[in-house]
Amino acid sequence: MKPLRHPFWQAVAILVIAYLLIAYGIPHLPQLVGMESAPVPGSVVLQYMVTVLVGVLIWVSDSDERWNRFLEPVRATMVDGDKRWLRLGLLIALPLLVGLLAFRQVRQTVAAPPSLRSIHPAPPSSITFRGRPLNLAGLDNPLRADGSVAEDYEEGKRVYYQNCLPCHGDGLDGRGHFAHGFTPAPLPFNDSGTIPQLTESFVFWRIAKGGPGLPKEGAPWNSAMPVWEDILTEEEIWAVIVFLYEQTGATPRTWAEAGEGGE
């Protein structure tokens, strides 16, 4: 008796291996390239398993001989006298399993409504800073004009540690000691998807106008980002922008990269 030579047990083995790969193997893939991972959603697992099952059925029914051998253990379980207890057990267990799955589908479950938030919404072409108009399109950090940022870095560091630190953190990783209190979580500047993708004028806009200055697609009502023009001067904001890029070793997106007219 060699079960693995038998098409029925081969089919079972394929299904088990497929399940393990989908449910437990796939979540490890992003980690191999250093990305964050999450469990595979149940609906996706189901979809993949149905695909695998159909493939297996096509394979076992490919030839009459294999199909008949495949059905042997199934028939034996249904017919043979020495398998009556197994038969009875399956007749009780399978319907109960189906009932449980049905219950999990219909019971009352509660999930927060989805929040479809744009993380880097399109900036306006101009804003007012403390009542003074400021054209964002094509705007560069004026502190870089003199060729050196060493002093501006120090000033930006002071501004950052006195204002930004509680949320964005010492490591600029968005994990300050107050970060856990806010949803959405504070932006991690050391993430390649944040400030390296943005022009300094975009960052200026986000700092000056904060959460309440976001357009609706940015969910302004949720953001804990202050309206910094109420607290910081224009020079302080440009200095802290220098600090963000210098400290993370990132370079701002240039207007040439961004194309005409913005992000």
């Binding site: 309440p212 976001l214 309206v227």
Partner: peptide, 21 residues
Amino acid sequence: DASPDTAAAGASEQGPLSGSQ
């Protein structure tokens, strides 16, 4: 170090919220 002119702040026209608190 910073004394924002609150009357002139006028951030409200920029976003859907009143902006400047």
